[in-house]
């Protein structure tokens, strides 16, 4: 009830901006404060409820991953908390000879690492060229990319598969094949980083050019050091995408189990195999995939937020 004491016991309020004196009844002020508090309380209630809804599936996932495979069931059961907590599923994933999980994990990690380097290189060169260099055909390139982007990505799946097969990059070569597919067209996703480059003042380039720097020097020595946030954003996105790709990964690695990525492997556990036996293993695998990616993402959250907000505003 200390709030009450703060309310001034006056009935005249001077509105400086409008230059008028208004009469305000003290009880009206008080009710306004009360209203404010009620609003805040209901917001807190909503936010707490939302937090529960948003976190629940992940908490459940973790719970179920710790359910004992040996003494309980590995499938879906009608209770949430394991009767016996154990690391059965994790041990199976990581040590059992019939589990390909470590292999899949390695595949995905390799793809993600290569993509984060190569894709960043592609995206940054395209966005830099389109944002800060002026040349004939620039608008044309942007329009062509816009039109190409309107075709659904999976349309070309068979032909890409065929191209990769000609190069020997399917099944056993699925990992380099996928890297090639992801990287080759990644230049088309230049929008967000171009938006970022657009915001760096042009006068910087111009003064460097007057001092005799070439355009490539401007890029390397002037702009790149300023572009740290967008570089990190691009790396982050390129690193995270391969973890979730199912479609191309399953198509390119078709039938060759050791060359799956985690998404394909785990998806098939849940949907193709008898998932009743693999459900808790899926949960454990999901936890192992989600934890490092999530930690990385949350650590770099700031850059992600800058990227999406900048990108959305610029359209």
């Amino acid at each position: 009830m200390s709030e009450k004491n703060k309310i001034p016991e006056v009935d005249i309020v001077i509105d400086q901006e409008a230059g008028v004196i208004r009469e305000v009844k003290p009880d009206k002020l008080r009710s306004k404060k009360g209203h404010e508090r009620r609003v805040n309380t209901s917001i807190y209630v909503t936010l707490v409820l939302m937090s529960i809804i948003w976190l629940a599936p992940f908490v459940f996932l973790v719970f179920q991953s710790f359910r004992s495979y040996l003494t309980e069931s590995g499938g879906m059961v009608n209770y949430l908390l394991p009767k016996q907590w154990s690391l059965d599923n994790y041990t199976w994933l990581l040590t059992d000879p019939s589990s390909d999980f470590l292999r899949w994990y390695g595949n995905t990690l390799i793809i993600a690492l290569f993509c984060s380097v190569l894709q960043t290189f592609m995206v940054l060169s395209v966005s830099y060229a389109l944002s800060r260099l002026r040349f004939k055909g620039r608008k044309l390139i942007m329009n062509v990319v816009l039109v190409l982007g309107m075709f659904p990505g999976f349309l070309t799946m068979i032909i890409l598969y065929f191209l990769l097969r000609q190069l020997g990059l399917t099944q056993d070569g699925a990992v380099p094949g996928l890297i090639l597919i992801y990287v080759a067209s990644s230049g088309m996703g230049y929008y967000i980083s171009k938006g970022f480059f657009d915001t760096i003042p042009k006068s910087l380039d111009e003064s460097a050019r007057i001092d005799g720097a070439t355009r490539s020097q401007v890029f390397r020595l002037i702009i790149m050091p300023l572009a740290k946030p967008i570089v990190i954003y691009t790396i982050l996105m390129a690193f995270m995408a391969p973890w979730g790709d199912y479609v191309f990964a399953s198509y390119v690695a078709f039938g060759s189990k050791p060359n799956y990525n985690v998404a394909v492997g785990l998806y098939q556990w849940v949907n193709v195999n008898d998932y009743q036996g693999y459900f808790t293993r899926f949960c454990a695998g999901g936890v192992l995939v989600a934890v490092p990616v999530t930690v990385l993402f949350l650590a770099l959250q700031k850059y992600y937020v800058e990227g999406v907000t900048g990108g959305a505003v610029k359209g």
Binding site: M122, S125, V126, Y128, A129, L133, F135, R138, I141, V145, L148, F151, L155, T156, I159, L160, L163, L180, I181, V183, A184, S185, S186, G187, M188, T214, R215, S216, Q217, F219
Partner: peptide, 27 residues
């Protein structure tokens, strides 16, 4: 490295997009 710098930067991405996007879509 200077006046034609855009060509240096766009060469590889253009090749990639042509082979892995434009050609397949056309097909």
């Amino acid at each position: 490295r200077d006046e034609q710098f855009h060509k240096t930067m766009l060469a590889l991405p253009t090749l990639g997009v042509t082979v892995f996007t434009i050609l397949p879509i056309f097909f």
